[in-house]
């Protein structure tokens, strides 16, 4: 069974069909890229999958469970993590706290019981801090742990957002343009982080404009244009696909 299955998804905005009858399946452990020109509906599809937008038609299934009308925080707790295209961190929390806040709701959610800091809660917090420090090490932000996230550079915030998405050890990771607007060194870092996740058996769905990254790391590529899926296949096949070339370069 596919881990994520999108069936006949339609999303319209005031008459504009942003996503038009898209089918998509991602198998466990796969690394799939979603590409397409600007405005082709990639981010809208992400938003429909993660509960930020309600689809007009069609269904989203995660492990066979219908996500179509599930709120973002519930989708997240089911094990679907996502990052945002515009780098998104909590600017007034420290880098460490940015990571902690991504795990705590998965560990426990006794809202008011948190007023009483039981030994169990303290132990969970210690575990969360350990995990957060390991992830900060991984993305090279060890010495920024106590800095306000808002004070970090653009690239550092991007790495922080990526690490935060990994905090709850999600089953499915949706990355929206992780390599956009960062320098070449950072792009290579991102690439190796994503590949490392793939080797660990994580399932990743990637939206990305940087073709080098997409072609280098993806197992399979799905191409959207004007909201419709126009091609799907291995990176090599996509590179030679006439419809894809037309969508990107015109006739």
């Amino acid at each position: 069974m596919a881990l994520l299955e999108v069936r006949g998804l339609v999303k319209r905005f005031l008459g504009v069909t942003a996503v038009d009858q898209v089918d998509l399946a991602v198998e466990p452990g796969e690394l799939v890229s979603l590409i397409g020109p600007n405005g082709s509906g990639k981010t809208t599809l992400f938003n429909c999958v993660t509960g930020y937008l309600a689809a007009d038609h069609g269904r989203v299934l995660f492990r066979g469970r219908d996500l179509t009308h599930v709120a973002p925080h519930r989708v997240a707790r089911l094990g679907v993590a996502r990052t945002f295209q515009q780098v998104s961190v909590f600017p007034r929390l420290s880098a460490l706290e940015n990571l902690l806040v991504f795990l705590q709701q998965h560990q426990e959610e006794h809202t008011l019981a948190r007023l009483i800091r039981t030994p169990r809660l303290r132990r969970l917090e210690v575990e969360a801090v350990e995990r957060a420090r390991r992830l900060l090490d991984l993305v090279g932000l060890t010495d920024k742990a106590d800095a306000a996230a808002g004070s970090l550079s653009y690239g550092q915030r991007k790495l922080l957002a990526f690490a935060a998405a990994l905090m709850p050890d999600p089953d499915l990771l949706l990355l929206d343009e992780p390599a956009a607007a960062v320098n070449p060194t950072m792009i290579n870092q991102m690439k190796s982080h994503i590949l490392a996740l793939h080797r660990q058996g994580k399932t990743v769905l990637l939206v990305e404009h940087n073709m080098e990254v997409v072609m280098d790391i993806s197992q399979r590529v799905v191409v959207l244009d004007h909201g419709q899926k126009i091609a799907e296949g291995s990176p090599d096949a996509i590179r030679r696909d006439a419809r894809v070339i037309e969508a990107y370069f015109g006739r």
Binding site: A76, R77, V89, R92, L93, V101, F102, Q104, R114
Partner: peptide, 22 residues
């Protein structure tokens, strides 16, 4: 602690708080 962090996450960036399961 955890309650404060969740409150501040909602204050600073509501969509992202949703992605954090809040």
């Amino acid at each position: 602690f955890r309650l404060g962090r969740a409150f501040h996450a909602v204050r600073d960036n509501e969509p992202l708080a949703g992605a954090a399961g809040i």
